[in-house]
Simulated assay, not measured.
Amino acid sequence: MAALQAGIDAQNQKLVASTLARVQKEGVIRKTLEQHQHKLIAQQGQLEELNKHLVTSNLARESLSTTVTTALKKLALATSTQSQRVDSVEARLASLAERQRECELQLQQLSGAGWAAYLGRNAVPLVALAVAVFALGLNLFG
């Protein structure tokens, strides 16, 4: 009985020692798990911050894209308007150039060759002036 009791006590001590070793291992494992859990929580917080930053960044990009698109539409409209204005100015310049050619032709026709051409162009007004001077002279001296 004493030998059996000694065997039971030895088994109990082994069981207590193995249980104590297992509890210590479980404590180490639990502590390691808690450390990993704290790290995961910290990393999750960092990921949430990065996600917020990405959302903000994406919203800023969308806003910038909208602004650039609007600016490009306004630029296209301004370019179209400017092109129409340039076309209008070119048409006016062509019209003015044609009018200038017409005026130059008229000047060439009117300029002729010296006094003979001048007298030929202005014969009627010169005769009228001479008659008016003659009539004035008659009235003054007559």
Rank of each mutant, 00 (worst) to 15 (best):
64 L>C: 04
47 L>D: 08
68 V>Y: 08
4 L>A: 03
69 T>M: 12
80 S>V: 10
19 T>L: 13
22 R>F: 06
93 L>A: 00
57 S>F: 11
108 Q>Y: 00
84 Q>E: 10
133 V>W: 01
10 A>M: 04
122 N>P: 03
77 L>V: 12
137 G>Y: 13
82 Q>H: 10
111 S>G: 05
137 G>M: 12
19 T>R: 14
63 S>R: 13
9 D>N: 13
82 Q>S: 14
57 S>D: 09
116 A>R: 13
45 G>Y: 04
79 T>Y: 13
123 A>I: 08
115 W>Q: 11
43 Q>I: 06
40 L>A: 05
10 A>V: 01
22 R>S: 14
100 Q>P: 03
121 R>F: 02
125 P>S: 05
1 M>L: 04
71 A>H: 15
76 A>F: 09
27 G>C: 09
15 L>A: 12
66 T>W: 02
44 Q>Y: 01
36 H>S: 08
5 Q>K: 00
54 L>M: 14
43 Q>D: 12
65 S>G: 10
119 L>F: 08
72 L>S: 06
75 L>P: 07
107 L>W: 05
75 L>K: 05
79 T>C: 06
27 G>T: 15
48 E>M: 10
95 S>R: 07
133 V>H: 00
10 A>D: 05
15 L>N: 05
36 H>Y: 01
28 V>W: 02
131 V>E: 09
24 Q>K: 13
6 A>F: 02
95 S>T: 10
138 L>E: 10
14 K>Q: 12
119 L>H: 14
11 Q>A: 12
109 Q>Y: 02
97 A>F: 06
101 R>Y: 08
90 E>Y: 05
113 A>K: 09
63 S>M: 06
119 L>E: 14
